[in-house]
C-alpha cells in the first residue's frame, strides 16, 4: 500500500502547510511519516514520496542521505543517540557512553542482540546543561532523556523491553 493510501489524513495535513505549488516542501514531513512503521524509509516509500511531490527518486535519496535523522536501513526498534559533543563531554558523556557500552555488551553502532536498542553517538542536542543525555528515536518520534546515569538508562531499557514505555 502506498503512503498516501495508508495515511491519507496525515498526507493531506502535510500538504496543507505549504503553498500548493510548493509541494516539494512536504518531502521532510513525508519522510518522517515514512519512518513511522519501520523506523527507516523503504525503497517503495522513497518512490511513493517522489511520485507524490513530483521529483526524482534520486533526489529523495539525496535528501535522506543529507540528514542524520532519516535512515534507509533497518536498525533496532530504538535508536539510543548519546550526545558526546564538547559541552556534554566536559560533563562526563564519554565515560557515560563507555560504561553503557560495557553494560550492554555492545559497541557504538551496534544493536542489542534482542534487536531492541541501537546505540549511537551524536552531536550536540541542545541539552548541554543536563548531560549526560541522549535521545531515543523510534518510528516517527524522538524523546529526550536528560541527567542520565547508566543505572537509570538500564532501567529505561528494561521498561522498553517490557513494552511499558512508548516513545511519544
Amino acid at each position: 500500500m502506498s503512503l498516501a493510501e495508508k495515511y491519507p489524513q496525515e498526507v493531506k495535513e502535510i500538504f496543507a502547510k505549504y503553498p500548493p505549488e510548493q509541494k516539494r516542501s512536504a518531502v521532510m514531513p513525508l519522510l518522517y511519516l515514512a519512518q513511522r512503521e519501520e523506523g527507516y524509509v523503504t525503497k517503495e516509500a522513497m518512490q511513493d514520496i517522489a511520485d507524490l511531490i513530483e521529483i526524482g527518486v534520486t533526489e529523495v535519496a539525496a535528501i535522506i542521505g543529507f540528514y542524520t535523522l532519516y535512515h534507509d536501513e533497518k536498525a533496532g526498534k530504538y535508536r539510543m543517540q548519546v550526545c558526546t559533543d564538547l559541552p556534554c563531554a566536559l560533563r562526563g558523556a564519554d565515560e557515560f557512553l563507555a560504561n553503557l557500552c560495557d553494560n550492554l555488551g555492545i559497541q557504538v553502532g551496534e544493536t542489542t542482540p534482542d534487536g531492541l536498542v541501537t546505540l549511537e553517538e551524536v552531536k550536540c542536542l541542545a541539552g548541554c546543561d543536563k548531560a549526560p543525555m541522549f535521545q531515543l528515536q523510534s518510528g516517527e518520534g524522538i524523546e529526550y532523556h536528560e541527567n542520565m546515569t547508566v543505572d537509570k538508562t538500564l532501567e529505561l531499557i528494561e521498561a522498553l523491553h517490557k513494552g511499558d514505555k512508548e516513545v511519544s
Binding site: 521529483i55 526524482g56 534520486t58 533526489e59 535519496a61 539525496a62 535522506i64 542521505g65 543529507f66
Partner: peptide, 10 residues
C-alpha cells in the same frame, strides 16, 4: 530536466 543524479551524504 531529468534529475537522475544527486549528491548523497554530506
Amino acid at each position: 530536466g531529468e534529475p537522475v543524479l544527486g549528491f548523497s551524504e554530506r
